[in-house]
Every structure is written in C-alpha cells, then in structure tokens.
C-alpha cells in the first residue's frame, strides 16, 4: 500500500473517532473538538486518496481542504461563542438537560 493509503485510512479512523466523540461526549467544547477531528479525517481522505501520483499531487483537493479548514475555523468560532452564551444562561456547557423531548412539555 502506498504511503498516501496510510493517511487515507487514518482519515477513516479519525472520522469514526469524531463521530463517536460527538455522540458520546456531553461537554460542548469536547463536541466541537470531535467535529474538528471528524473534519480533519474527511480532509485526509480527500487528499490521501489523490496521493502523490506519478503525475504529481493533484492540487484541486489541496485547494478544497484549505477552503474546508477556513470553514471549520469559522464554524468552531461560532460554536464557541454559542457555547459561552448558552453557559451564561443555563449554567452548564452541555445540552443534556434539554434533550429532545418528544412528548408534551410540562
């Protein structure tokens, strides 16, 4: 397997880890870390699959990943502000108490 293959597979592992962290961690800061790790995994698959080929690396995935990184930092910044504001109003940096209620609210 080529070197790029290692990274593409590591990307898959990161995606799985990110999904797991997002599902299991309650702290919102940790959930945002998980989203970032999930994103890094997707980026690794995107570039790793293109790999250094005979024709040289494919610049299009590189550009897409740079775009993705900027989008990720924007989303993280917004997420952090939301988390802080939510903590100020509710006292806790988690969502667990107001888990989706399907029934009528008391």
């Amino acid at each position: 397997m080529s070197a790029a293959g290692f990274y593409a597979l590591a990307g898959v592992a990161l995606v799985v880890l990110g999904l797991y962290g997002l599902a299991v961690q309650a702290h919102l800061l940790r959930k945002l870390l998980a989203v970032n790790i999930l994103g890094s995994g997707v980026f690794l698959v995107l570039v790793g699959l293109g790999g250094p080929a005979d024709a040289g690396p494919d610049p299009v995935p590189h550009a897409m990943v740079i775009t993705g990184i900027v989008v990720a930092v924007s989303a993280t910044a917004l997420g952090l502000v939301l988390m802080l504001k939510l903590t100020t109003t509710s006292g806790r940096p988690t969502l667990e108490d107001d888990a989706p209620r399907e029934g009528p609210e008391a």
Binding site: L22, L28, K31, V35, A75, L78, G79, L82, M83, K85, L86, T89, S90, L95, D98, P100
Partner: peptide, 11 residues
Amino acid sequence: AALSGAMRYLL
C-alpha cells in the same frame, strides 16, 4: 431555549 436549539442545530 433558542441558544440550546441553535447549538444542537449547529452540531
């Protein structure tokens, strides 16, 4: 409620 809904929505 809005902040919590927005946070869940963001994720």
